[in-house]
Amino acid sequence: MADNVTPRVRVPRDAKAGEAITIKTLISHQMESGQRKDGDGNLIPRSIINRFTCDFNGQNVIDITMEPAISTNPYFEFQSLVPESGTFTFTWYDDDGSVYTDTKDIAVS
């Protein structure tokens, strides 16, 4: 089980129509690769975030498959076009079945 998983997102509060904005996301997660062994020589089971998506008003912006080699607290920074005011929805999918979401509104003038 993953402890202390908290998503964080930064999206500008407003933008001009058609502008490309920069979005930063971070989720605290230990990203246990499944390759390491504990003190007794037993494998520590894999526990990672395996997928991350971002949607804007229902339309997909980015969809990422994540692999065990990604280090702890995965951080993604990407750009998106914003044609109109709306809501960004961010979703992280954990190996243990948990789904973490966050939303941010943006006003477009």
Partner: peptide, 8 residues
Amino acid sequence: DFDNPAML
């Protein structure tokens, strides 16, 4: 601070 992992 958003990019600084110490903030976690």
